[in-house]
Simulated assay, not measured.
Amino acid sequence: MIQLKTKEEIKLMYESAQIVSKTLGILTKEISPGVSLIHLDKIAEEFIRDQGAEPGFLGLYDFPNTLCMSPNDQVVHGIPNNYTLKEGDIISIDCGALKNGYYGDQAYTFSVGEVDSSIQKMMDITKQSLYAGIKKCKKGNCIGDISFAIQLICENAGYGVVRELVGHGLGKSMHEDPQVPNYGRKGSGARIDDGLVVAIEPMINLGTHKVKFHKDGWTVTTQDHKPSCHFEHDVAVVDGMPKLLTTYKYIYDALGVYSNEEDEFIFNP
């Protein structure tokens, strides 16, 4: 059952979402060759708690850490460990925070130094597909319209769209209805209305869409061991239109990058 949110609830969710976005911004400055995943995880936990929030993933379904950290051929849900980043790696960092009883949830795939041009292209197109999906998250459309927009861009570029893992509703629980697949048919799925809040998150592979679930109960990798990337935003439908609760602004500020990709989705609480 979909739990539509009031404007007051969306404002509370915005606060949680912004904490997650700021956390990713802090981590951006730390990502470099030789840095361990567990070091980044500790930085994130400390920052989130300093904001008066709790790490959203820590202990959720018994997950052992603050961040899901998934380098290279890991798709999602990687457990932070002593792996040290290397030049040319990519790493998806998925972060959650809980404040005022509501969750924020966001992911970004970072490059470590210079990455192969084919991998960079996959990342760019995946992020492009995220915003194409967000544009379809408006009153009167269906969830399948979001899914179709993402799938069309990524598969036309020759990438594998993961089937087994999907986006989701968000609120007082980290995972609520509806599920938001990254593949689907126009006009299918639940009807979108004001108050819907979803995490839209394309998970896209350079090769096959097929994945492998590992025995640790969390780690998911591509079956062909080619790289995968993951981008995620929290989106609320306000007055019929999609508004971003999360932002990549803090990441771009840390990188010294200008972007206007979020301008049409700015939420003013």
Rank of each mutant, 00 (worst) to 15 (best):
K139V: 12
V112F: 10
M1E: 12
K226P: 05
V75F: 03
D263C: 08
D62M: 06
G207Y: 00
K22S: 02
S129N: 07
N72D: 10
E45W: 05
K186S: 11
I134Y: 11
D62W: 03
G101P: 05
P71T: 02
E46G: 03
K215H: 14
G25K: 05
E30C: 10
I91S: 00
S92L: 04
K11W: 09
Y131C: 06
F213D: 02
N268A: 09
K121E: 12
E87G: 02
V197L: 11
T222Q: 06
G256M: 02
T221H: 02
Q106W: 09
G96W: 05
E54N: 12
R185W: 14
V162Q: 03
Y83V: 06
S129F: 07
D62H: 11
T66E: 05
Q18N: 15
K7H: 13
G171P: 04
D94I: 14
A149C: 05
V211Y: 07
N72Y: 01
H39M: 12
E15R: 15
T84Y: 06
Y248S: 11
L60I: 06
A236C: 10
I134P: 01
Y250C: 00
C154Y: 01
L165G: 07
R185N: 13
H175I: 15
H168R: 10
Y159P: 00
K42Y: 13
I79N: 00
L152K: 15
E8T: 15
Q106I: 14
M13A: 08
G140D: 11
V180S: 03
P242I: 13
V166T: 08
I200M: 09
D177H: 13
T28P: 01
H233F: 09
G113N: 06
S188R: 13
Y250L: 02
Q179N: 13
I43P: 04
D234Y: 09
L98Y: 05
G96R: 11
E264L: 13
C229Q: 02
Q128N: 12
V161Q: 00
G144F: 02
F47R: 06
Y102E: 05
S118L: 12
I134S: 04
G101D: 08
K7L: 15
L85R: 04
E45H: 09
K127G: 02
H214E: 08
K172N: 11
K86G: 04
S173F: 12
S228W: 01
F267A: 10
Y61V: 08
E15V: 14
E155Y: 07
N141W: 10
V35K: 15
Q223K: 14
T66L: 02
I125L: 15
G195C: 10
L27C: 04
G88Y: 04
I90D: 00
N82Q: 14
I251L: 02
F63S: 05
G256V: 01
T208A: 10
H168F: 08
F231C: 06
D194L: 09
E54I: 14
G78V: 07
E30M: 08
G113A: 06
V166F: 03
I10H: 07
H77Y: 14
T84R: 15
D253E: 12
Q120G: 14
I153W: 00
D224N: 04
